[in-house]
Design a protein around this nucleic acid. Structure first.
Length: 924
RNA sequence: GCGGGUAUGGUGAAAUUGGUAGACACGCUAGAUUUAGGAUCUAGUGCUUUACGGCGUGUGGGUUCGAGUCCCUCUACCCGCACCA
């Protein structure tokens, strides 16, 4: 780290030896070990608090300064709550199944377990440096067989459960079987395979053929939230649709509860909205239109459409089917067949590319068939068009051009009629989506707005047997199979092709010779020759997705060593919901939705006593890196300075930020950086320096903009890094990292330490009584710090402590009565230094258990207050008066002041406002 | 297009219910001091004006004695979803 000189390590704050010593002490004393039912000093049980971080995937790159941000924030709160007398559960673990370790294994043959172990060791080492108060005895790893045994068990329970809509929750599948035996005569006649097929339609974890997102490059299926823009989130590979037999989670059974219960959690509104939109609930009606002139088994064919606006049915002028819709083939007339087939084929092929480009014209084709409106009896032409999606609703819509923008555009484009159904609406102008528009030409619905017309319309249609009210969700059941090696194996074997839950032992991830699919295209597990259980006909070769293990890990921390259950009910009853959950916003539709789903399921089955996992959620913003760039003149070894780059044809290259200081490149260091730049020459700026370009982007090794916490800890200490990361700004906000500001925070800690020790390390603390100003400073600081921690304003706490220390320094205050509470205030942010100072103060136990200081308002009372006196809102002078002066006396004092007379220039004030303790405003 | 968010000095930011905008830091300027270290200390630092003063929280408007904060309008940027009937 040549950018920084050597930090003077004065005796008053020798952070290196302090931090080493305190960490050792915490370790030996097991300071952070926590047990259920801990008692307060007075013998009463402590209240519990559960502070949790989203556990990391241990990647090979190690931690950069962005990773610990959330961990520091949660650690601050965990420590604060502990000071307040809570029994705090604050654990950490690893989401250690995942793709990178597997891909590394494919390339090198190294077993993913080995890579994972190495990476975890590195993560642990880096985290230990930062002085977190994690109870490491509760560590969990999702790839540990002792852990995933219970992931498998929960899967088995989901498999053995169904969703009883009447009971409003998950029930054992045995109850359903009993019901079938009791009520369904056909059941007794079925063979095992048929029964299995029927039950599969009810199980919460079920096997089905489904259209999946297949990624050939990764050789696996991906969930919708693992894809963006038609490409895989990881690696950016192309994704295509494919039909496969997959394990699927019936999360849609919980769609309503997943939406409704969002009202019961204290989460950022953005995440709540993301989940709401993702679930995408819409209420309306399912309406059936008969197809004119068709007969199948004696009945006319029917097209079922979903509409959120059944009240606009009189405005329907045509019907549109998705090109993939089954009925398209059946109803298309002979003369239209060629055209329709060509269209459907082209629509299917083109959709993927054009969806990505985002620009799709209006296209569609008439099938030649007509559907009959169940309400007016009118014949409506049936079209196939790609603006209707096969995967949503019924894959068919009734087009109401007057009431829907897309239908309107389609009608315009193909010159289809646009019946006017809204009063005062010009159908030539566009559609009216306004729900307050009043209906006309709509039979019994005339004169009504959507609010009232909706129910009547559904009623009318129901009478004719043509519709019923229905709720639709955008949410799909979640595909739960992955064709990977490094994941939880399913506790499933097959007998006569029927899946059987393995209950005679744990299915442990078997060894394989290669981490690749077999020649037949089976997943890697098909290569396994030795399994931990009898395999029967064959085992399930898929593994579970990454979100399986992370959907319940917060429960395992409560009872991490339990061999008999995933978590004893008494433990989960004690710890309950996670009180504060901190992590990135990128999990909005993945982890955070799935863990809610599993929590509700476990609640339904009576295994835990709460149905939402995370009471309060905070998303920390990403810490971005500031990348630096050099500009190489094409074809040569010459680099041109930023401001002159336009004079040449250049190529922009990332350069390591440690070679750059304030945009100026250390050219010698640059030449030594990489062999290919050894002979570099430079076209410099006018001032003789080489200036780099810069950009704020994600921190990543490949961008050479990574700041490593270890280096900063070595140079400034963990306490400084902790305080600095909190000081950067509001936790939720994304912010670029700038190491420069760290010195200010480091100085603050030194200044604070100097209140306790002089430069030779001698103790300065005295037992004499403090002065009033010292007490005021300390109690003001206690008040502000406590309040800001309560409202999770991490950054302003640091400022408040800086102000306090600045004042105490100016007061030359060294009284024990002041410095004791100050050490406790410091402890959540700078635990090592606080612990050290606590010892210096002669305290026996850990500062972690010191009670949080309580501010005494008596010390904050001031004898006099200063009122800003403003005229017409502009402050003109300040007025010092006794603090207990009444508003009317303050008014008199202000008006009586000579400076007021000067402002008034003899005029009489129109009005005088006195806000006690705040301000005086005089209106002239 | 829909949903959510953001906008304040050269920089990160603060201002909890409307009450002295810019606290606290970084950076910068000047000075002091020093074994000359990028250390430490002191003073200054929103813009503008010689000064008195004037102007200032993305834009335009409104409510109010008083608006960064409340209401309406527009703009830019960020995030999520995206033909969801």
């Amino acid at each position: 780290m040549r950018r920084f000189g050597k930090t003077p390590s004065a005796m008053e704050y020798d952070f290196l030896s302090i931090e080493t010593a305190q960490r050792k002490r915490w370790n030996e004393d097991e300071t952070y070990r926590v047990t259920e039912g801990a008692l307060a000093p007075d013998g009463t049980p402590k209240k519990k608090f559960y502070a949790l971080d989203m556990f990391p995937y241990p990647s090979g790159a190690g931690l950069h300064v962005g990773h610990p941000l959330g961990y520091i924030a949660s650690d601050v709160i965990a420590r604060y709550k502990r000071h307040q007398g809570y029994n705090v559960l604050h654990p950490m673990g690893y989401d250690s199944f995942g793709l990178p370790a597997e891909q590394y294994a494919i390339q090198t043959g190294q077993h993913p377990a080995v890579t994972t172990e190495t990476n975890i060791a590195r993560y642990r080492q880096q985290m230990d440096l930062l002085g977190f108060s994690f109870d490491w005895s509760r560590e969990v790893r999702t790839s540990d067989p002792a852990y995933y045994k219970w992931t498998q068990w929960i899967f088995g329970l989901l498999y053995q459960s169904w969703y009883d809509v009447e009971a409003g929750g998950a029930r054992p599948i045995a109850e359903l079987v009993a019901r079938f035996e009791r009520e369904d005569k056909a059941w007794a006649t079925m063979d095992e395979g048929q029964k299995s097929t029927v039950l599969m339609e009810h199980r919460l974890a079920y096997l089905a053929d489904s259209q999946v997102n297949w990624c050939p490059a990764l050789g696996t299926v991906l969930a919708n939230d693992e894809i963006s823009g038609g490409r895989s989130e990881r690696g950016g590979h192309a994704v295509e649709q494919k039909t496969m037999r997959q394990w699927i989670m019936r999360i849609t059974a919980y769609a309503d509860r997943l939406i409704d219960d969002l009202d019961t959690v204290d989460w950022p509104s953005s995440i709540v909205e993301i989940q709401r939109n993702w679930i995408g609930k819409s209420t309306g009606a399912s309406i059936r239109f008969e197809v004119a002139g068709t007969r199948e088994a004696g009945n006319p064919l029917k097209i079922e459409v979903f509409s959120t606006r059944p009240d606009t049915i009189y405005g329907a002028s045509f019907i549109v089917l998705a090109p993939e819709h089954d009925l398209v083939k059946q109803i298309t007339t002979e003369e239209m067949r060629k055209k329709v087939e060509a269209y459907c084929e082209q629509a299917g092929a083109a959709s993927e590319r054009e969806r990505m480009s985002g620009e799709r014209g209006i296209s569609g084709v008439f099938t030649g068939a007509y559907a009959v409106s169940p309400i007016s009896g009118e014949q409506l032409p049936v079209w196939a068009a790609d603006y209707v999606l096969a995967g949503y609703g019924t894959g068919a819509v009734m087009a109401v051009p007057a009431g829907d923008d897309r239908d309107w555009a389609f009608a315009q484009h193909f010159n289809l009629p646009i019946p006017a159904i809204f009063e005062g609406h010009d159908t030539g102008e566009g559609a009216t989506v306004d729900k307050s528009a009043v209906l006309m030409n709509s039979g019994a619905l005339d004169g009504l707005a959507a609010k009232d017309a909706m129910a009547i319309a559904i009623e009318l249609l129901e009478e004719k047997g043509a519709a019923e009210a229905r709720v639709n969700y955008r949410l799909r059941d979640a595909v739960f199979s992955r064709q990977r090696y490094w994941g939880e194996p399913f506790p499933i074997r097959y007998k006569d092709g029927i899946p059987q839950l393995v209950e005679d032992g744990q299915v442990v991830l078997p060894e394989v010779d290669e981490y690749l699919p077999t020649a037949d295209g089976d997943p890697p597990l098909a290569r396994a020759t030795r399994w931990s259980v009898p395999t029967g006909e064959r085992m399930e070769y898929n593994t579970m997705p990454g979100w399986a293990g992370s959907s319940w890990y917060f429960l395992r921390y409560m009872d991490p060593a339990n061999n008999a259950a995933f978590c004893d009910r008494s433990k989960s009853d004690y710890w309950g919901q996670v009180d504060l959950y901190i992590g990135g916003a990128e999990h909005g539709t993945g982890h955070l939705l799935y863990s809610r789903f599993w929590t509700k399921f476990l609640f339904d089955r009576g295994l835990i006593g709460f149905h939402e996992p995370f009471k309060k959620l905070v998303n920390q913003g990403m810490i971005l890196g500031r990348s630096s760039f050099v500009y190489r003149i094409e074809g040569g070894p010459c680099f041109v300075s930023f401001d002159r780059r336009k004079e040449f044809k250049t190529q922009r290259l990332h350069v390591d930020v440690s070679l750059v200081d304030g945009d100026v490149l250390d050219t010698e260091a640059f030449k030594n950086w990489r062999p290919e730049y050894a002979n570099a020459t430079f076209e410099l700026s006018e001032d003789g320096s080489y200036r780099c370009g810069s950009e704020v982007e994600k921190m990543s090794k490949s961008k050479f903009n990574v700041e490593n916490p270890d280096d900063l800890v070595e140079r400034y200490g963990a306490d400084t890094l902790r305080c600095y990361e909190m000081f950067l700004g509001p936790l939720e906000q994304a912010k670029p990292w700038d190491t420069k500001g760290i010195s200010g925070v480091h100085n603050f800690l030194r200044k604070l330490a100097r209140l306790y020790r002089d430069q030779d390390g001698a103790c300065l603390v005295v037992d004499s009584a403090p002065a009033a100003d010292g007490l005021r400073t300390v109690h003001k600081t206690i008040k502000k710090v406590s309040k800001d921690l309560d409202r999770l304003s991490w950054n302003t706490v640091v400022s408040a402590m800086m102000i306090g220390v600045n004042e105490l320094t100016a007061q030359d205050a060294h009284q024990r009565e002041l410095l004791e509470p100050l050490a406790v205030l410091l402890s959540p942010y700078a635990p090592h230094l606080a612990e050290d100072l606590w010892s210096l103060l002669g305290k026996k136990g850990s500062v972690c258990d010191a009670p949080w200081p309580v501010f005494d308002a008596a010390h904050l009372v001031e004898a006099e207050v200063t009122y800003p006196v403003s005229f017409n809102g502009k402050v003109r002078f300040e007025l010092m008066v006794a603090a207990d002066m009444s508003p009317s006396d303050v008014e008199a004092a202000a008006l009586g002041d000579a400076r007021a007379a000067a402002q008034l220039e003899g005029n009489r004030p129109k009005k005088v406002i006195v806000v006690p303790g705040r301000i005086v405003n005089i209106v002239v």
